[in-house]
Amino acid sequence: MPIIRFWCVLLLWVPLLVRADAFVFTAIPDQDESHLQQRFGKVADYLAKELGVEVQYIPVKSYAAAITAFRNNQVQLAWFGGLSGVQARRLVPGSEALAQGYEDQFFKSYFIAHKSAALQPSAALPSELKGMTFTFGSKGSTSGRLMPEFYLREHFKAAPEAVFSRVGFSGDHSRTIAQVQAGAYQVGAVNYSVWDSELAAGKIDLSKVQVIWTTPTYPDYQWTVRGDVDQHFGNGFKSKVREALLNMKDPDLLASFPRQSFVPASNADYAPIEATAKAIGLLDE
């Protein structure tokens, strides 16, 4: 009986594996992940209207899962972070960065510290950080991990594990803020835009946690498309996608990312990110 059931279940899966011919995208949101389906569903509707094909959105929450879906051709378009975009494009030859957020041209990270660390805001990365406890955001995040680690290594000439008494990965920018605010870690690195919006929302108590250093700017989030979309969806499809993204003006749609608008981007824009990732050993040569 259990065996029969086993085969029944297996056979019943077969219809689920039948291919669907829609243009599919995913997005790695760095803040406000709630109601993803609802919010990005609207983006899918917009793209469907502009592109004239069926467009679907699948929610993915980890960088690794998003990159895998892109590589498998389960999604053809993805809103990646700087680092995840570089990783994805290395895995899928021919794929291209199409557009970035206006803000992504000069993205930055904040180093934030709990008051017990007794650090003051300064123009240079303070050397007193040595020996403190420190948390990054997600391991695969550009603003929460890659760039902060790069500047730490540049300043201290050592790996973070050697600089700090403990290095954690909070997994998320909001968690970084919450953990530093609660003093669980003395210092943390966070995406500036998440900090700014949490500050505006009144979630941050400046008497407990403050920004002590701002990194130089770097390119971050971008839309990346697979190289073979023209073959599947017709010639010129890629440029239509680019146009549709650049023409997205509805503040309601842009708020999902959240960006004020999208501007053109190219793979070359992310060469500094790739070089940085190689320099700190996150990518192989």
């Binding site: 406000d32 709630s34 699948i58 929610p59 929450k61 980890s62 909001s174």
Partner: peptide, 20 residues
Amino acid sequence: GFIGLPTLGFHLETAFKQGQ
């Protein structure tokens, strides 16, 4: 749900991460 299945963890991780 953490890697994208539409189960409870999908929402739980989000809510927890966002401090909701």
